[in-house]
Design a protein around this nucleic acid. Structure first.
Lengths: 224, 224
DNA sequence: AATTGTGTTTACAGATTATTAAAACAAAAG
DNA sequence: CTTTTGTTTTAATAATCTGTAAACACAATT
């Protein structure tokens, strides 16, 4: 099925349960938390495909949470705002949210938004056929083109590259890469990432050497 | 640059101008109308690549307009809805709209949606217009021609080939192939697919060897 | 310059996955 | 009923991928 995991963060337990159940009925997996810190934790761990966050939360509120997430990820974010709450939409979109929904809302509408947003972001990813300076990824065909070449990548290499690509320009730690590519329950050596990076680099040739960068003490990043 | 023409239909002049200017800045041509009838006229005349229509319009409203357009065209349509009209959106997707945006919205978001939608639909078109060299399938006659030869395929082989053909360039998992060719309720060994692929490959001769590819760890794909 | 922490490279065994061939099974045709 | 044809399963073999380790290289720190 869809197999997408959606994070719901709101301090009103009632709301979280309502949304959560509805989304699960629609075929999504959900993770439910009641404050911003917990949400941030989970997003950092990886494996989340979309987040629904309330503006008003104790501690880390919706804005702050969004800002934190945007430091390392392009995760689609839907913001929940209560009617009457000051909500400057322009500011919101600038801050990095992708959608917003005002309470009260019909859960069905929310599900539609979730679907639309997931479709949108996956469509964007799929159609990166606009030559990003030499690198072209086709997620349907599982192929890569770089500088006219079409190197044969293995599954792990391909997924690793996709993850780096989706977060292009951002440094990803080995741990983040492991949970993103290998899964959150992977137990194994962090050097594994190094090996695959190495293989990727050689397979991507000159482009790999130039754009797949190491950040000493931090991890790796792909610069487009 | 892009050279795409976008139709904007809304009775609120302010909105039309706002969207229009923004889209033109983004490199699109725009046509602006203030009611449904005028919009329908222009679409029928042709030359429109995408339409943005408001739900609330005098005369022909957004729903009716969409329904009329859908009678003769798959034109990508983005629906604008005012806050509070949210419930109606559910029907929208069924009625044939491709995207929706709630007012108030950030113009930047709208442009993003337009881009995504145009890319999506142009990709779909490309797919049907691709000239298939080498492989020709006649679904009525249940025959295949490849490199001048006309290999005799069995039913399963033929259907398997059709499925791969319809998704050419896309990797399909064994599971996807099983449900597509054998039916969703098929319970059986995934290796079955392998066997048929093997036979297809030999029957399709050189073409099969060259174009019917296996993606390690994922499944199979047909490259035209 | 030596030390320590960190990244790279290489090689390889074990694990996973795919291919092939053959046999078992099922359905249709003669 | 037998034969033929098509389909599925199984098992053996082949190909390939992947994680780890060890040696090496490089950077930062003292």
């Amino acid at each position: 099925m869809t197999d997408k995991t959606i994070l719901i963060a709101d301090d009103e337990e009632r709301i979280v349960m309502l949304i959560g159940d509805f989304l699960e009925n629609a075929g999504y997996k959900t993770m439910r938390v009641y404050d911003g810190e917990a949400a941030l934790d989970l997003v950092q761990k990886g494996g989340i495909d979309l987040a629904i966050v309330d503006i008003m939360m104790p501690g880390l509120d919706g804005w702050a949470l969004t800002r934190e997430i945007r430091k390392f990820s392009n995760l689609p974010i839907i913001m929940l705002s209560a009617r009457g709450e000051e909500f400057d939409m322009l500011e919101g979109f600038d801050a990095g949210i992708d959608e917003y929904v005002t309470k009260p809302f019909s859960p069905a509408v929310l599900v539609k938004r979730v679907e639309a947003l997931l479709k949108l972001s996956s469509a964007q990813k799929n159609h990166t056929e606009v030559e990003e300076k030499g690198l072209k990824i086709d997620r349907d065909a599982y192929t890569v083109r770089v500088d006219g070449e079409a190197p044969e990548l293995t599954l792990k290499e391909f997924e690793l590259l996709c993850t780096l690509y989706d977060n292009a320009g951002r440094v990803l730690s080995r741990d983040q890469l492991l949970t993103s590519v290998w899964g959150y329950d992977y137990y194994g050596d962090e050097r594994t990432v190094d090996s695959h990076i190495a293989r990727l680099r050689t397979k991507l040739g000159e482009y790999g050497a130039a754009h797949l960068k190491t950040v000493y003490g931090m991890g790796y990043k792909l610069e487009l």
